[in-house]
Design a protein around this nucleic acid. Structure first.
Lengths: 100, 100
DNA sequence: GAAACAAATGAACATATACTCAGATATTGC
DNA sequence: GCAATATCTGAGTATATGTTCATTTGTTTC
């Protein structure tokens, strides 16, 4: 199938979406959130960076509506909003795993 | 389904893959190459940046084995290597188009 | 070989990005 | 209210990235 070239505006949004998964830490955050919500402290331990760094990443992912926050007492639990996003992410992971 | 957190090495490769589509110009290049090979001059016109910029982007995409080059006389035609990559890319585009 | 065209390359520069640190904000239990 | 814990935020910094410009390389036609 042949598509016309994406217009600047749409392309910018597509780039923005893929950019969400273009960093090692964010990829690991996403992989931790697949199938199970986690709070900031847990994510920091799992990913191996400071809670501050995790928080900064989550803010970006939240602004793109990729993750959602739910506060429970002192903790804030994050989860992936849209199952389609999980599929997209998983496809990227599978592609890499296939060529190793 | 619940996955363990991706190891640093795999996550870095996944990030690298998604980073390929994390720039507006590269997204437009990819969209131009879906279904049809194109040379550098054509891509430069379609995307609206210099041939040099296109060439730099294509080098990156080539190193990731996302596109392949084929020389025909003076021109070099580029095409997307793997149909799975097209699917992945299209899914990102569709996600954006769905929410507009 | 010389001229013309297509593409690739390296350096330079401006901007974007990820991380750390210090401090602020929110919530709980006393 | 106060101390402890969890999270967020802004500033600063070091590095990565995208683009342009000048030059080089590869190819064709004369």
């Amino acid at each position: 199938m042949k598509l016309p070239v994406l217009d600047e505006h749409t392309a910018a949004h597509v780039a923005e979406l893929f950019r969400a998964f273009s960093d090692t830490s964010r990829v690991r955050i996403m992989s931790a959130l697949v199938g199970e919500e986690k709070n900031v402290t847990e994510l920091a331990k799992l990913v191996g960076v400071t809670e501050s760094a995790i928080s900064h990443h989550l803010r970006g992912l939240r602004q793109l509506h990729i993750v959602r926050a739910r506060r429970d007492g002192r903790e804030v639990y994050y989860s992936i909003v849209d199952p389609h996003i999980v599929t997209l992410f998983q496809q990227g992971v599978d592609h890499i795993k296939a060529e190793e």
